[in-house]
Amino acid sequence: MRVIVADDSLLLREGLVRLLREAGLGVVGQAGNPDDLVALVADARPDVALVDIRMPPTHTDEGVRAAARIRARFPDVGVLLLSQYVDTSGVVRALSREPESFGYLLKDRIADLDELTEAVKRVAAGEPFIDPEVVQRLLGRRRTADALETLTRREREVLALMAEGRSNESITQRLGVGDKTVETHVRNIFIKLGLEPDPEGHRRVLAVLAYLQA
């Protein structure tokens, strides 16, 4: 697997490179600003680019905008955003455009090699990944959508795990329940959110977006 690391902090970049190589992943380049990142992606064509949300010159949303440029020009390249803080607005906008191969991980969790490796591999495999801690913080916020308020406690737990990018099989293992039970919860979530059957299978993504936006 080929990975690019983009962060204006040289210390953090070097730390990420070391961790990724310890996990057996190949780092093919580093960038300290958005323009260098996009140019490096064009040249190296990695499987995944790890991108800090806040990059020079203003340290606001340059990373998110660089990620959008990468997704537009190189849709086969996965993007894993890194952030010091929970900043769901930019992530939600990006996910709403192209949720596949897109992830969001808090920086205070990248020292966990298993967590970091799972995030990179899932994004490289074309799956979405949302940091579990981000999901848990979102769970504590007041929901404004009446439809979400109708979900049971267990259905909210299932939807939170869906928001992490987990499959039904993974949710079954995490909750310790049967396959049919999880399927029933997912079906109930779709019904309560008013998501009709979709031949392209977008209901899962729409349910997660509704959850994150609320």
Rank of each mutant, 00 (worst) to 15 (best):
S96C: 01
K121L: 11
L138I: 13
A119K: 07
V177F: 01
H185N: 07
R71V: 10
R156I: 09
G90I: 14
K192S: 01
G178M: 06
I189P: 00
L19C: 06
L206G: 07
A49L: 04
D61L: 14
T60N: 11
A147S: 13
D61C: 02
I191R: 15
D146A: 13
D114R: 15
D87W: 10
A49D: 08
L212D: 08
R54E: 13
I53P: 00
G63C: 04
R137D: 10
A39G: 09
L16A: 06
V28G: 05
T150P: 00
D108M: 10
R204I: 05
T152I: 02
A124M: 02
A72Y: 05
L195C: 07
S170D: 11
G176W: 09
E196R: 15
V79K: 10
R13Y: 00
S101G: 09
D7A: 09
R122C: 01
L175P: 00
R54N: 08
P34A: 08
A31S: 06
R154H: 05
P34M: 13
L105N: 03
G126L: 01
V120D: 03
G29S: 07
L11V: 15
Q213G: 06
I53S: 08
G15E: 03
A31V: 00
K180D: 09
A6E: 11
Q84E: 14
R166T: 01
D47L: 02
P46A: 12
R69A: 10
V86G: 05
P56L: 10
V135E: 03
D61Q: 13
E100G: 14
S170K: 14
A23I: 04
K107N: 01
A124F: 01
M162R: 13
V3S: 06
Q213H: 10
Y85D: 11
G194C: 06
R54I: 03
Y85E: 12
K192R: 15
M1N: 03
L105G: 01
D114E: 12
R93F: 04
A160I: 01
A68W: 06
R45K: 05
T60G: 08
A210I: 14
A160S: 11
G15V: 02
V134F: 04
V51A: 08
G15A: 04
A163C: 01
E127Q: 10
S89R: 14
I130W: 12
E115Y: 06
F129S: 05
E127G: 01
R21D: 06
R71E: 09
A147Y: 03
G194Q: 11
T58W: 06
G78H: 02
L195I: 04
S101E: 05
H185Q: 08
A94N: 08
I189K: 07
R54K: 12
E127C: 07
L193W: 06
T88G: 06
F102Q: 12
A31L: 08
A49R: 02
F129V: 05
R137N: 11
G194L: 05
L113D: 13
L209D: 12
I53M: 14
V41I: 13
L193I: 07
T172L: 09
R109W: 09
V208K: 11
R153G: 00
L95R: 08
P99V: 13
V77K: 02
L139W: 07
V41P: 00
D198E: 11
A94V: 15
Y104G: 07
V208Q: 10
L10V: 15
P99H: 10
V91L: 11
R204H: 04
G26D: 14
L37F: 06
